[in-house]
Design a protein around this nucleic acid. Structure first.
Lengths: 159, 159
DNA sequence: GCGTCCGTACTCGGATAATCTCTGTCCGAGTTGCCGAGG
DNA sequence: CCTCGGCAACTCGGACAGAGATTATCCGAGTACGGACGC
């Protein structure tokens, strides 16, 4: 099991947008150029972030993507949930109500939630909770000045 | 992204073994019968748990799987790691060293670890850490007496 | 010279293949217990 | 009646297909800029 590569790409792209804070939209091809990614595939992921309200998009020449919220109001949890959806890592299929328990399924269910499911849910909550403490602004602050300058030059390049 | 179904199956099976504590090995088909699972597919997952040392297996009639460690020394983290391996949920591909940073890759790398990777790693650590606090014995303790009796009857059945 | 119109180029957005993992099934190697024959 | 040998059935274990998700690509709809034309 692995997180899709798009999470990494999108997170880095958001950090770039936060770092450079361009006054104009940035096209996916420009963002892809920064880290030598596939422009069209990156575009696909940024689209999802538009749908969930993390980015706004503009068509046409000089179009592209723009951050809607400030960087300190976007967390890694938002990125993961935006791309992956809010579906749980562990999905309980309630097998405990099948097999020899088929006839008592309702009773078992009424006795309480599945312990494995509860434990998995709590662990996942810890994971998401941790992700929610890390903002894009935090990540941008960790980038060295030299790299920031390089990215700013790229993003604001007119050619 | 989702955890394989095998995690759920294997975890429930371990709980059954812990609940009933049979003096003899239990075949995968018997374990599968408990929750109406595919015996051969469950077998496949239990094999992996044998390899990582959570179970022992015996061939032949009256063969099957047996818990090696006591239930309070097996955690959900062991189960997940046994089946999934220790590979990270998020794999950083270090794209920050590509594209416009290609020529300075080594410098960027030396400046410190990727912030996104570090945050993801910390979150995953929280997840795994939580899973490590839940033992199979804990889960077994949450099963009601009636269900335990039903499972014991099934596991010890001679036919 | 200035305003308007049109064409072009560039953008996002979704529809369309290729690849990999997960899911599920099947058959072979090995072992144990049973059954019958022999002493 | 007890012992031994062969047989059969059952087990794990790994090799073999099918489904779903991820990865990647391509083409269409729409839009803004630039140039050409008319006034």
């Amino acid at each position: 099991m692995q997180l899709p590569k798009g999470v990494e790409w999108a997170a880095h792209s958001l950090v770039v947008l936060e770092l450079t804070r361009p006054p104009h939209p940035v096209s996916s091809s420009r963002l892809a150029e920064a880290y030598a990614l596939s422009a069209t595939y990156l575009n696909k992921h940024l689209q999802r972030l538009v749908r969930v309200g993390l980015l706004s998009s503009t068509s046409g020449p000089s179009g592209g993507f723009t951050l809607i919220r400030p960087g300190n109001e976007i967390t890694l949890a938002d990125v993961v949930e935006g791309l992956e959806g809010s579906a749980r890592l562990f999905r309980c299929t309630e097998i405990r109500c099948n097999g020899v328990f088929r006839d008592r399924g309702a009773t078992v269910r009424a006795a309480g939630p599945c312990g494995i499911d509860a434990a998995m849910a709590a662990a996942e909550e810890a994971w998401r909770g941790h992700l929610a403490t890390v903002t894009i602004a935090d990540l941008a602050a960790g980038v060295d000045e030299r790299s920031r300058a390089t990215l700013t030059d790229l993003i604001n390049r007119t050619t």
